[in-house]
């Protein structure tokens, strides 16, 4: 499903060179739940950017859902991204659109018919427990609610992969637990979930595969890992 082969990512700003990732190798199979842990600057976000095609590797090869990221053209990015749902710490909702429109947008962008949109969007919002706030704008929602809209939007295209980049970073413990529960439920339905976080409690409780990054290198990759940095 996701394959990183000797991947390095080096950023050059003027004459300053900084290595974000160095010789990374891992493989994620369908149905897996993988946590990506590491301190700030360890390279978690770079891994995510590479998976969604926002960046290209300096060295090595990346395959995501049969797309070769190295050779992916700008015009083919939308096709790749319709197979990947992404949620972020800062939610990244479209502020001028209601919860319903935010979720519907992903389907509309994929050119799905209106009849499907009218059927699936309320279902997705119901799944994340937001049926009653469908027509609210993001500014009228709490942090937890915003993240649930983001999850509904990420899931609406039935992606093969769901990437969650610090999804609970801005949430209280109660909402954090709710979001993690949702991610597990999504994983049970067959979607690969990649969770990038530095929340020790979550990782220890999950008892799933953990890839630990430090200074751009993988220092541990355990089947049932703990947060141990």
């Amino acid at each position: 499903m996701i394959n990183f082969q000797s991947v390095s990512k080096i950023y050059k700003v003027n004459s300053h060179v900084s290595t974000a990732l160095e010789d990374i190798n891992f493989n994620i199979s369908p149905g897996e739940f993988v946590s990506l842990v590491g301190r700030s600057g360890a390279g978690k976000s770079t891994v995510i950017k590479l998976i969604i095609g926002e960046e290209k590797p300096t060295k090595g090869r990346i395959i995501v859902s049969s797309h070769d990221i190295n050779k992916l053209k700008q015009s083919n990015l939308p096709h790749l991204r319709r197979h990947i749902g992404v949620i972020f710490q800062d939610f990244r909702l479209l502020v001028n659109k209601t919860a319903y429109e935010n979720v519907a947008f992903a389907l509309e962008a994929a050119g799905r018919p209106q009849i499907e949109i009218e059927e699936f969007v309320p279902q997705a919002l119901e799944m994340v427990g937001l049926s009653d706030k469908m027509h609210n704008f993001p500014s009228e929602l709490s942090g937890g609610e915003k993240q649930r809209v983001a999850i509904a939007r990420a899931m609406i295209n039935h992606p093969d992969i769901l990437i969650a980049d610090e999804p609970t970073g801005n949430l209280d413990p109660f909402n954090t637990a709710e979001i993690i529960k949702l991610l597990l439920k999504i994983n049970e339905l067959g979607t690969v979930v990649i969770l990038a976080t530095h929340n020790k409690e979550i990782i220890d409780e999950l008892n799933k595969r953990v890839i630990s990054l430090e200074k751009g290198k993988i220092i541990k990759d355990e089947e049932r890992g703990k947060y141990d940095l």
């Binding site: 015009s75 990015l77 939308p78 947008f105 962008a109």
Partner: peptide, 16 residues
């Protein structure tokens, strides 16, 4: 500009 970036991430084509 942020919205435009988000739309790209959600898989919208440039023309859309």
């Amino acid at each position: 500009r942020e919205e435009i970036g988000i739309m790209r991430l959600v898989g919208a084509s440039n023309s859309f």
